[in-house]
Design a protein around this nucleic acid. Structure first.
Lengths: 251, 251
DNA sequence: GAAACAAACTTGTCTATACAAGTATAATTT
DNA sequence: AAATTATACTTGTATAGACAAGTTTGTTTC
């Protein structure tokens, strides 16, 4: 319906005004806003690429990139020759909920203790910069913390924090694990990802964890964002015999 | 190094010849082949976009799309002004969203194969009954499947299925992995939970996975519900060196 | 030798245009 | 009215060129 399409496009073009982000990202944002607000319903046809090109005065490649990325992200569904439609919300979406390890241990009725192995303020090397999405030599904190549950070492935490976003990170009391609370306060977690694998710990790590060299360990690499900013990367290493990871998805 | 780059590009351009797939997809494939074969190592710099444009006689937009998509998939790491590098780990299996392992492997551009080790219809013993939320002696299927990625064993799947909810489970073609599709059809997944830990495989499992006895393995125990019914429990075992688990939360 | 500056290289993004392939709609023929 | 054909619309993909922004390398100056 022409009137409806015009109306959709008119408000869509209003939505993407005034932002320093790339145009393709703003188009994505505007579309998501339409969907999240309920204005565009599941299975509803989205304006065609050429309609968006006209309404937004941008190139088709830019519109195409926005729509394609939203399709990859499961927000939209496209079919060649037919059109683009709002995807139905998936029945399940699995998440790790990221918890404060102290709270997890307390929830088990056990006692948590943290031992700060080291913390330094430094300039990010190239790898750290890439992992944190900052420039090389950007100011960071590097911290290594050993966590105990009922006096038993349960996890080595190696963390790199963007010092710009958490300037007083090194002033926290790591024995009370206030560092976690501090991070949540200055840069509330909005997004994260984890990579989990089974590894063998290095000799030094075996010593810290009080395990022998052949014991398998669970390694979790986690990156955490606040809004669009990558706040911290962490590598968590736990003996397989003492640590499990639980996840739940669905209702 | 010019010679090395020329060599890289020469063989890259040979790799992408003769395929009906879109050019951007062929470029992706060729790059993945270089990486998976070990010819391009982690952290190694990949030829620049303009080098690839020249060597492959394709447009920069086409190359850019291939590199960008591989970056999104975790295969490559890019930094503006610096270059494109091979990422340190393979594209990882998305967990906690439950996917068909065959689809995950195909999405990486690899070949999946499944070998049915055994399947039997049986009466649930007490432990199986408890795990499935059914009565002891309830009718179940027990299946053990060995999954391969590019001819390399990557995972042992031990599964127990509630036969009432999936009566034709044993009639599926496990080499084509239609069992997964069948389960999704008769009992669509609405809820699940996972328990992940690092373990050492048994000698028999080491043999199936073609690993030595000291290699750490990732074990995932998963329970899956359809509506309020527990459909299946699975134990997935993968060598740490070949398998990672990825999770994402937030937007 | 160090610092400052310029040049070159690299990725990020955008525009315009074109053709391929698939589908829906409109027009024509029977 | 039904079938067939043509047209229009839509997404998929590709090319060429341009400018912005970031980084590295080379040159010049002190």
């Amino acid at each position: 319906m022409v009137d409806t399409a015009t109306s959709m496009m008119d408000s869509l073009s209003k939505t993407i005004e005034d932002s320093p982000a790339p145009i393709y990202a703003r188009v994505k944002q505007a579309i998501c806003h339409k969907i999240n607000s309920g204005e565009w319903q599941a299975d509803q046809r989205v304006p065609s690429e050429s309609e968006m090109v006209k309404a937004l005065s941008v190139s088709r490649m830019t519109v195409n990139r926005a729509l394609r990325e939203l399709t990859d992200e499961g927000v939209l569904v496209r079919q060649q020759g037919v059109g683009t439609f709002v995807a139905q919300k998936k029945a399940h979406s699995a998440l790790f909920e990221v918890h404060n390890i102290a709270d997890e241990i307390a929830a088990r009725g056990h006692t948590h203790k943290a031992q700060l192995i080291e913390i330094t303020r430094a300039k990010a090397n190239m790898e750290e910069a890439m992992n944190l999405g900052v420039r090389t030599n950007h100011s960071i904190f590097r911290a290594t913390i050993l966590h105990f549950e009922n006096e038993l070492p349960i996890q080595i935490e190696e963390r790199v924090v963007n010092a710009s976003l958490a300037p007083d990170y090194d002033k926290q009391d790591f024995q009370l694990n206030t560092a976690y609370d501090y991070l949540m306060k200055v840069a509330p977690m909005t997004e994260g990802e984890h990579l989990v694998e089974a590894v063998i710990a290095s000799p030094k790590e075996c010593e810290l964890l009080a395990i022998n060299a052949s014991e398998p360990c669970l390694q979790i690499k986690r990156r955490t964002w606040s809004k669009d900013k990558l706040v911290t990367t962490a590598r968590l290493l736990s003996p397989g015999s003492r640590f499990q990871l639980f996840g739940h998805f669905g209702r």
